[in-house]
């Protein structure tokens, strides 16, 4: 656990301890990284067909003849 916290500090800058009752704002729909999964997938597909770079959003995702 300590090692993980240390990694977290190095990568993300700190181990905050926000209690469950303090997470109301974080639970709002506006705070979702991708509000609509289908829209996010379509946008990533469009960018991947026109640019050389892709990835970083997670595992999976099919290849395509468009790139």
């Amino acid at each position: 656990m300590k090692i993980f916290c240390l990694l977290s500090v190095l990568v993300l800058g700190g181990c905050a301890n926000v209690q469950p009752w303090e997470r109301g704002y974080l639970a709002k729909p506006e705070m979702a990284f991708d509000p609509n999964p289908a829209t996010a997938a379509q946008m990533q597909h469009m960018y991947a067909s026109k640019e050389a770079a892709s990835g970083g959003y997670g595992v999976g995702g099919g290849g395509c003849g468009c790139n």
């Binding site: 990694l7 977290s8 990568v11 993300l12 800058g13 700190g14 181990c15 905050a16 926000v18 303090e22 997470r23 109301g24 704002y25 974080l26 705070m31 990284f33 990835g55 970083g56 959003y57 997670g58 595992v59 290849g63």
Partner: peptide
Amino acid sequence: RVTRGVFTGITQILSPTDILQSNLA
């Protein structure tokens, strides 16, 4: 063509108003 991928990521609550995610693929 065969493509193999590995992925790791951390999502961390920084404060009651901030959340951060960092992924390596």
